[in-house]
């Protein structure tokens, strides 16, 4: 296990380095001079050169990267051009909101998806299987930002049951677990849960069908084990992979929450990204992407390690 742990960490480190290089270069692939957004349009050539020196843009790229990475490691992700506040502060407020939304969506998606997938795999070929497969196809094919709009139309515009946007009366800073706030969470979380639901259902269906076709299941049945006993064995065998898929989905939702957060004006990292794009606030864009991508790399690593702990077969592979 320790060997596997070390192997996995030494694999993640160069990837994390690469990810940081890509994020660093984002500002440099952007058209135009990165200084234009901070300088007045009529700035003199002398002032421009001076600013270039202060910001370090006159140095070679690798040196710039080194300075940027050192600062980033210390938690300094630069300053947002639009608000003038440190990017890290803006992110700190947003990340909790996104995490709350993504974790809830993953849980809903995982529970419903495993249920559909399990039933479909258990009764393979039956109408229940066809229905469950149909639902999971819908889940992976629906443009979720549109689904969010449709849910708003039904539950906010037509029925007036739930709020369409925002995070509650206190805004993003005063979240409490009471109905006034939770009702703001329902529509975005349900919308977001559709993606992992479809994917988990597909995975679990394939897993269950595969496990049921293996000899040890026939052996268990021959031994006289009832359906419930067989069920226990199937769950035990399917769980590590299903949990790994769930972990990865959480990562995808964290990184991909921008569309849903835009639809619902949910004050998370995705909403922040949307603002950064709208205002061409490159430091904010860069910092947010860096943090989300590194989060994803770390989560991937944790998922692999947990899976290896649950299922020793993974370690040998």
């Amino acid at each position: 296990m320790l060997v596997y742990l070390l192997k996995r960490i030494t694999h993640a480190l160069p990837v994390a380095f690469g990810v940081s290089v890509v994020c660093f270069l984002l500002v440099h692939i952007a058209p135009g001079d990165p200084l234009t957004s901070v300088l007045p349009p009529d700035a003199s050539a002398q002032l421009q050169a001076e600013m270039r020196r202060i910001y370090g843009f006159d140095r070679p790229l690798p040196v710039q990267y080194g300075l940027w990475a050192m600062k980033a490691l210390q938690g300094d992700l630069g300053t947002s051009i639009a608000t003038g506040r440190p990017v890290a502060t803006e992110l700190g407020k947003a990340i909790g909101n996104t995490l709350m939304l993504a974790v809830l969506a993953t849980l809903i998606g995982f529970i419903l998806g495993s249920l559909f997938g399990f039933v479909a795999g258990y009764f393979r070929g039956s109408w229940i299987d066809k229905l469950a497969s149909f639902i999971s196809i819908i889940g992976v094919s629906v443009p979720h930002y549109w689904l969010g709009m449709v849910l708003v139309i039904i539950f906010s515009v037509q029925l007036n049951w739930l709020p369409a946007t925002g995070a509650g009366p206190g805004g993003s800073d005063a979240w409490r677990w009471d109905w006034a706030h939770i009702r703001h969470l329902i529509l975005p979380a349900v919308t977001m849960s559709v993606i992992p639901m479809g994917i988990v259902a597909r995975t679990v269906r394939a897993l269950v069908a595969d496990i049921l076709s293996q000899e040890f299941v026939s052996g268990l049945r021959a031994k006289g084990l009832l359906d419930f006993g067989v069920f226990r064995h199937v769950v035990k065998n399917a769980a590590p992979t299903a949990l790994a898929v769930m972990g990865l989905q959480l990562g995808y939702l964290l990184g991909g929450s921008i569309l849903i957060e835009t639809v619902f004006s949910w004050p998370g990292t995705g909403f922040l990204l949307g603002q950064a794009i709208f205002q061409r606030d490159l430091p904010l864009l860069q910092g947010t992407i860096l943090v989300l991508a590194l989060f994803f790399v770390t989560l991937n690593m944790i998922v692999d390690i947990v899976q290896a702990m649950l299922d020793p077969r993974v370690q040998r592979a």
Binding site: G18, V22, I258, L259, I289, L292, A293
Partner: peptide
Amino acid sequence: FFAFPSVL
């Protein structure tokens, strides 16, 4: 590049 979620 694979380490980024595709939407991100």
